[in-house]
Computed example of a mutant assay.
Amino acid sequence: MPAEQILSNARLVLADTLIHGSLLIRDGQIADIREGASSLPQAQDLGGDLLLPGLVELHTDNLEKHMSPRPGVDWPSASAVLTHDAQIVAAGITTVFDALSIGDINPKGKRMQQLGVMLAAIAEAEAAGQTRAEHRLHLRCEVSHPQCLELFRELVEQPLVQLVSVMDHAPGQRQFARMEKYREYYMGKYHLSPAEMDHFVSEQLANSARHSDQQRAAIVDICRSRELALASHDDATLEHVTESADYGMAIAEFPTTFEAAEASHARGLKVLMGAPNIVRGGSHSGNIAAADLAQRGVLDILSSDYYPASLLQAALGLAEQDNGYDLPRAIATISLAPARAAGLDDRGEIAVGLRADLVQAQVHKGQPVIGQVWRQGRRVF
């Protein structure tokens, strides 16, 4: 990697404006930003393309697809991590929080078996310098699971852990306040018979009543002592939001009602919604649409969730809608806002002194086409 690089003739998306200009990278950081094209012969001409800050992804379970590409198939974990990493960086994501679930409500699932394997594989690849994006860990704590707290105490010792969310997927609340939607979703996803579904519902309700409140409080206390960023999950009521705010949570992941989203935003929690929700035009669970939250000005962060390429496409789509989100504000939902919410102040925007995490992209008929990606000035795509 050269000590200095000049990227010229680009439309730079800054935190609050868009300029046509050039950018100097020195020793992995942004050293200078100027309007207009550079006349220096060593400058790389970006042909008028967009130059964006590297995207920051806080919540993706994309790795799971590569660990189990087909039912009953376990893929070698080292290969799965590198394939996942390649897909992440090809989507323009330079910092990714891989979301690993502690507790699996799927009666036929393998998340618990894969948890330690995935964590170890990510840590090993990152330590060996094999990944192109920078990987952090997001521990998703299913607080209704009997072993959640015990496993969390063990896994939180991993240095890559920087974000923790607490969730309870018991029926009749939060993501699935409507029982018919809950039954439809899980019977379809896990191929359960009506009798199996009845047992499943009873078991989840009992576990939630027995474990959720106690384990949620204990996990929050541990995170506070370690100064880890905290996120709520699927808040639906003012009571949920009050609890999350009182716990000092920084992020409200996927609130399921307008009431909860607006209250979270008002209490200072950054409201995170799924980018696929924007691309597809709504929630697959029948809850509020992210675009409607943007209309109300309370959408702060987008996450690709299960589809990495949706992140930039959703932000560009957001900027095209009549909602008060111009291009810089829309791009901030996938860069600056998630970086700051997770406690990262060295990236997330194009500004002098920050990391040269950058994405060159053009847009063809609404579809982003990524040309190059740099992480700390080194080209990784």
Rank of each mutant, 00 (worst) to 15 (best):
R340T: 12
V220H: 08
V13R: 00
L14T: 10
R375A: 02
D27F: 09
L24W: 13
V298W: 05
V271D: 05
D300F: 12
I19C: 09
I88H: 02
Q214G: 09
A314Y: 09
G348N: 06
A252F: 04
Q321G: 05
H191V: 08
G116C: 11
T256K: 04
Q362L: 10
M187G: 10
A291R: 06
P2H: 11
A260S: 03
A337F: 06
L52P: 00
P368L: 08
R340P: 05
Q175T: 04
Y185M: 03
G103Y: 01
Q215I: 09
A356C: 11
L46M: 12
P2I: 13
R26V: 12
V201Q: 02
T256Q: 03
G348M: 04
Q87K: 11
A252Y: 00
V73W: 13
K189Q: 12
Y247D: 11
E239F: 05
A218G: 11
G286F: 01
S165Q: 13
I93W: 01
L58F: 02
S208A: 15
D32L: 13
I25Y: 02
E259S: 08
A289W: 11
Q204C: 02
R340G: 04
S304Y: 05
D357A: 00
E64C: 13
V56L: 09
G366K: 10
A314P: 06
Q44Y: 08
L163W: 01
S225D: 13
G129R: 09
D45H: 07
F254C: 06
S232M: 05
W374S: 01
A218Q: 15
L327I: 14
D234K: 04
L354M: 12
D27H: 14
D213P: 06
S244K: 08
V56C: 10
A319C: 07
N287C: 13
A231E: 01
P2R: 10
Y247A: 15
A3F: 12
H84S: 10
Q175F: 12
Q204R: 02
L100K: 07
L327D: 08
I288V: 14
I122D: 06
I30D: 00
Q147N: 14
Q215H: 12
L18F: 03
Q29L: 15
V161P: 00
E57I: 13
L269M: 14
I370P: 00
P53Y: 00
A351C: 07
M67G: 03
V56K: 03
S202K: 02
N277P: 08
P107F: 08
D198F: 00
D213M: 11
V279N: 07
Q42W: 12
V117A: 10
M167Y: 01
E126A: 15
H59R: 15
Y307I: 15
A133P: 03
S304N: 11
M118C: 12
E203D: 03
L299I: 10
D234M: 04
Q42R: 11
A356E: 03
V117L: 14
R347L: 11
D85E: 07
N207S: 01
T256E: 01
R136L: 15
L12K: 01
D322P: 04
H364I: 15
V156N: 05
V220Y: 04
V164P: 02
G28L: 03
D45M: 11
L312M: 07
A351T: 04
M179V: 08
